[in-house]
């Protein structure tokens, strides 16, 4: 397809879509007053409900159903796929890695974000300082994966060969020998997690920084008059005041981390014992053609997300009730 043809297709699609919205608005504008409300509501909601039903509800239910079927999807096998996930040694590694990701990433990213937000709060170059940490959020996970793959780049330890990866150069300069950061298990998973922390710290910092700025000044002033020092201020004023924001940040990063796929795929392809549930889902579904196991892994992701969200909603409600 030529470039011109592609753009033509795009404008056709946008045109078609504008026509659909136009028809909806035309229908809606013919009904006025309270009696027409139901018609207008139906017209406004129809496209959304249709797209969501076809794109989210039906596929979701279908996947749950598929997860009880075999690799080819033609024989019912009960919970065997789930048994595989929890019993097979390879799958257990996948689970272990996923737990590592979900436990480490939110806490470290939030800690770094919070620390940085406090450090640069009201500094002269605050906006610039924040932008530096914030920028990785605009980059794709694929791009971030490549950036860090280069940091971890390994060259064999031989005469005349210089390291081109930053981390190995530092190791060698310190008198050590170069390390295969992405290959040696289990630490390679930690080095992948660092990439996610690098991306998410900016998100944590932004939300927490806004939250810190919203702490009423009289509370801070009162604490200071009571002789509270920097650490006490952090422990007894800052953290309790921004608790709801902290929970939102932790859970949001947790959910995002659970679904991480691009980083693993770009940097190791899930080899060397680095696969996680979201990556394993892709490999099983599209590489190994094991539809049943792939579906079960997707359902597992869904099941793991639910308690995090439930916790989030409960915490926020109780903090609102206070």
């Amino acid at each position: 397809m030529s470039t011109a043809h592609k753009f033509l297709t795009m404008f056709e699609a946008i045109g078609l879509f504008i026509a659909v919205v136009g028809v909806i608005l035309a229908i809606a504008s013919r009904f006025s007053g309270r009696r027409g409300d139901r018609v207008v509501a139906a017209a406004f909601l129809l496209p959304t409900v249709a797209l969501i039903s076809v794109g989210l509800v039906y596929p979701g239910l279908k996947t749950i159903y598929q997860s009880f079927y075999n690799a080819a999807g033609n024989a019912f096998i009960g919970i065997d796929n789930y048994r595989t996930i929890f019993g097979d040694p390879d799958q257990r590694t996948v689970l272990r890695n996923t737990v590592l990701w979900v436990v480490i990433t939110p806490f470290v990213a939030t800690a770094v974000g919070l620390l940085y937000a406090i450090l640069v709060d009201k500094a002269r170059v605050e906006a610039l300082a924040k932008a530096l940490i914030f920028l990785p959020m605009a980059i794709s996970f694929v791009g971030a994966g490549i950036i860090w793959k280069f940091v971890y780049e390994f060259r064999p330890d031989q005469q005349g060969i210089k390291q081109t990866g930053l981390l190995n150069e530092i190791l060698v300069k310190l008198g050590g020998s170069p390390h295969q950061f992405l290959i040696n298990s289990p630490w390679n998973t930690v080095f992948l997690i660092i990439v996610m922390i690098w991306i998410q710290a900016g998100f944590a910092m932004t939300v927490l920084s806004a939250s810190i700025k919203a702490i009423p000044e009289d509370i801070v002033e009162a604490a200071r008059l009571d002789g509270v020092r920097a650490w006490g201020m952090f422990r007894y004023v800052t953290v309790p005041s921004i608790r709801p924001a902290l929970i939102v940040v932790l859970t949001t990063i947790g959910i995002g981390t659970l679904k991480v796929f691009d980083i693993v795929r770009t940097m190791t392809g899930g080899q060397f014992d680095t696969s996680v549930v979201a990556n394993e889902f892709y490999s099983q579904s599209f590489r190994s053609n094991n539809q049943g196991l792939g579906a079960a892994l997707a359902v597992l992701l869904f099941v793991l997300v639910v308690p995090i969200v439930a916790y989030n909603v409960r915490q926020l409600r109780s903090s609102e009730g206070r």
Partner: peptide, 16 residues
């Protein structure tokens, strides 16, 4: 609609 935000897209890909 609000609750559907939490559906991981992985769950939908193959049937879609």
């Amino acid at each position: 609609v609000f609750a559907l935000q939490i559906v991981p897209i992985q769950v939908t890909l193959i049937p879609l």
